[in-house]
């Protein structure tokens, strides 16, 4: 087991390192730079040069990469080129929007997917199953940004129940902030529920098909005893790990929904940073998002290693 974990850990570090290389060098290709955009078209060359030097943009790429990685290793995300403030401060403010959004969406997704998947599994092949899985199929096909638009249309345009977008801020208006996250979370969550409910159903079917469940049924245990006593617990392990991965994609997928509802979250910050050529910020965010996925996959791997010893041999 220790060998398995250390091998995986080595792989994790290597993958993160390669990811940082990719992120850094790919972004070197972006045309234009922050200094030019900050100073506009009327700027004189000496001013431009001075700001480039001040921002460190005139240094060789290798040194800038070293600075960036060195900073990250010591927990310093660096300063924004455009805003001149520590990136962590900006990211923290945005996480205060994106994380609650992801959690809310995930809660909605789970609240829908667990019962739907369970009922569908128990009703397998029957009309209820067909209808539920039909909805899941449609849910898979609905782009979350379009669903967001429809929600805006129904709840903000036709009825004036919600705002079509924007975010009042937790400090000024906590309830309004919660409300502002609701429609986006619904847009994200329902799409996610479609995927999750299919997973839950499949995992349930799998477990229901295992010998011990059939034995339990044969012993005359009731449906709910079997379901809550045996099946659910066992089905939850794969469901939970897959949910973990889904959560990572949810955070990344919120980029576009944040755009639909104009939420000041991580996704919006990322797009803005790209357009403003705030490269250090872009790099931090991209590495953060992909690092999140990489680390979560690592955790899932390790978890599976514990569950299933056969997987400990390196594949």
């Amino acid at each position: 087991m220790a060998g398995f974990i250390s091998h995986r850990l080595m792989m994790l570090v290597l993958t993160l390192f390669v990811a940082s290389l990719v992120v850094f060098w790919v972004l070197e290709l972006l045309p234009g730079d922050a200094a030019q955009l900050l100073l506009g078209t009327e700027v004189q060359p000496d001013t431009l040069a001075a700001i480039r030097a001040q921002l460190g943009l005139d240094r060789p790429a290798l040194l800038r990469y070293g600075d960036w990685i060195g900073g990250l290793l010591t927990g310093d995300l660096g300063d924004s080129l455009v805003y001149g403030i520590p990136i962590w401060d900006m990211v923290r403010d945005r996480l205060a929007v994106s994380l609650p959004l992801a959690v809310m969406a995930f809660t909605i997704a789970t609240a829908i997917a667990l019962p739907v998947g369970m009922v569908a599994a128990m009703q397998r092949g029957r009309l209820t199953d067909l209808i539920l899985m039909g909805f899941a199929q449609i849910g898979l096909a609905v782009p979350n940004f379009w669903f967001g638009l429809l929600l805006i249309l129904v709840f903000a345009v036709l009825n004036n129940w919600f705002n079509a977008g924007g975010f009042p801020g937790w400090q000024d208006d906590p309830v309004g902030s919660l409300k502002a996250l609701f429609l986006p979370a619904l847009a994200l969550g329902v799409s996610e529920a479609a995927i999750l409910s299919r997973m839950v159903r499949a995992a349930m079917l799998e477990t229901l098909g295992e010998d011990y469940v059939r034995t339990a049924r044969a012993k005359g245990l009731s449906i709910s005893r079997v379901l809550f006593g045996h099946t659910l617990g066992n089905a939850m392990i794969p469901i939970a790990t897959l949910m973990g991965l889904q959560f990572a994609f949810l955070v990344a997928g919120s980029v576009i929904v944040e755009n639909v509802f104009y939420l000041p979250g991580i996704g919006q910050l990322l797009l803005k940073a790209i357009f403003e050529r705030d490269l250090i910020l872009v790099r931090d965010l991209v590495l953060m998002l992909s690092g999140f996925v990489i680390v979560l996959s690592f955790c899932v791997d390790i978890a599976y290693g514990f569950i299933d010893p056969r997987l400990r041999r390196t594949q």
Partner: peptide, 12 residues
């Protein structure tokens, strides 16, 4: 997997 294990509908 997924043999028919004959759980009755729990429509309620």
């Amino acid at each position: 997997m997924a043999q028919n294990i004959g759980i009755k509908p729990v429509s309620g």
